[in-house]
C-alpha cells in the first residue's frame, strides 16, 4: 500500500453499552476506523463486525448511526426537512428526541441548513444521528465546534440516552478533558497501532505516577522490574508513569494518573508495550482488526 497503513495491528472488542473514547494523534487512523464501522470504507485487510454482522449488512446499517467529522448535511434543506429525511429513511426514528435536541439550541425549524452557524449545524447533524435511535452511535470529533456550554449539554443528552437505551457510543476527540467526564471505556491508537484499550477504571488502576529522587542515569533500579511507560526528570527529581507488576520498593511518592495523563504518556512513548484489558481482547485474536460492539 503506497500511502502507508492508516491502521494496523489493531484488534479489540468494544463491549455493548459502553461510552468509548477514541483518542489518537492526527492521522492515527481514528476516522478510518470509524469509517469502516460506519460502512463508508472497506478495510484493506482484516475485518470488523458490528453486533456480529458485517458493517455493510442491513442489520448493522440499521443499528449504527454515524456523525462525520465535517457534519455534512444538505445545505438547501430546512432543519425540518433534514429531520424528515431521518424519519423517511429510518424505521425506528424518534422524532421527539431529534426535535428536542434541535429546539434546545433554539435552531429555527424552517431555516435552511446552509444559513445556520457551525454549532447549530452540528446540533442538527447530531439530532439526525441521535433520532435514528441506533444501538451503536459513532461520533467523529463531535464537539470540535461547540462552545463548552453546548458541549456539556449534548454530552449529557448523549449520556442519558445511552444509559436509557443501552446505546454503545464510540466518539473520537482531541479534547481529553472532555472525554474524562463521559467515557467509561478508552481506545488509544497511535502510529496505526492500538496502544490502550479497556475500561477507564481498569486502565487508570493499572498505572501509577511515581515520584522520587534521582540516583543515577537511566531507569532507577527500583522501577526496573515494572513497566515504565514514561519518565521525566527535572533536576534531582524523577517522575515516572509506571505499570507496576507488584509492590514497588524504595522511597517513592505515589499518585494516581488521570485520563488526561495516561493517553498522552502512551502517545509520547511509542516503545511502551500496549495495554489491552481482558474485556477488550478479541477471543482467539484472529484477524488483524476486529471489533465486536
Amino acid at each position: 500500500m503506497s500511502a502507508g497503513w492508516a491502521l494496523r495491528d489493531c484488534s479489540f472488542r468494544l463491549p455493548a453499552g459502553r461510552i468509548c473514547g477514541l483518542v489518537g494523534p492526527n492521522g492515527a487512523g481514528k476516522t478510518t476506523l470509524m469509517g469502516i464501522a460506519a460502512n463508508l470504507l472497506e478495510p484493506t485487510a482484516g475485518s470488523l463486525r458490528v453486533f456480529g454482522a458485517a458493517p455493510e449488512s442491513a442489520e448493522a446499517n440499521r443499528r449504527t448511526a454515524f456523525l462525520a467529522q465535517k457534519k455534512p448535511l444538505f445545505r438547501l434543506f430546512t432543519v425540518a426537512e433534514t429531520l424528515r429525511l431521518g424519519r423517511e429513511l429510518n424505521p425506528g426514528w424518534d422524532q421527539r428526541a431529534a426535535e428536542e435536541i434541535v429546539r434546545c439550541g433554539d435552531v429555527p425549524l424552517h431555516a435552511k441548513v446552509g444559513t445556520l452557524s457551525g454549532g447549530q449545524r452540528t446540533r442538527v447533524a447530531f439530532a439526525l444521528a441521535f433520532g435514528k435511535r441506533p444501538d451503536l452511535l459513532i461520533l467523529d470529533e463531535p464537539m470540535s465546534d461547540l462552545d463548552p456550554l453546548v458541549r456539556h449539554e449534548l454530552m449529557n443528552t448523549l449520556f442519558a440516552g445511552a444509559v436509557e437505551h443501552g446505546t454503545t457510543v464510540l466518539l473520537s476527540s482531541h479534547l481529553l478533558d472532555e472525554l474524562a467526564g463521559v467515557c467509561d471505556y478508552l481506545l488509544v491508537v497511535a502510529s496505526g497501532g492500538l496502544r490502550l484499550a479497556g475500561e477507564v477504571d481498569a486502565l487508570l488502576g493499572a498505572h501509577t505516577w511515581v515520584t522520587g529522587v534521582r540516583t543515577g542515569e537511566g531507569t532507577p533500579e527500583d522501577l526496573a522490574p515494572h513497566g515504565v511507560v514514561e519518565s521525566r526528570t527535572s533536576g534531582q527529581q524523577i517522575s515516572a508513569l509506571v505499570r507496576p507488576y507488584g509492590a514497588i520498593t524504595g522511597s517513592w511518592q505515589f499518585g494516581a494518573p488521570n485520563l488526561e495523563d495516561l493517553p498522552l504518556a502512551y502517545l509520547r512513548s511509542p516503545d511502551a508495550p500496549p495495554l489491552i484489558t481482558p474485556s477488550a481482547q478479541v477471543a482467539g485474536h484472529t484477524g488483524p482488526k476486529e471489533t465486536a460492539a
Binding site: 460506519a38 463508508l40 442491513a58 462525520a68 455534512p72 429513511l89 425506528g92 435514528k132
Partner: peptide, 15 residues
Amino acid sequence: EHGTAKPITSQSVTR
C-alpha cells in the same frame, strides 16, 4: 464531493 453521501449512507436504507 460535498460529503452529503455520508449522512445518507448512515440511514437505514440498503446500498
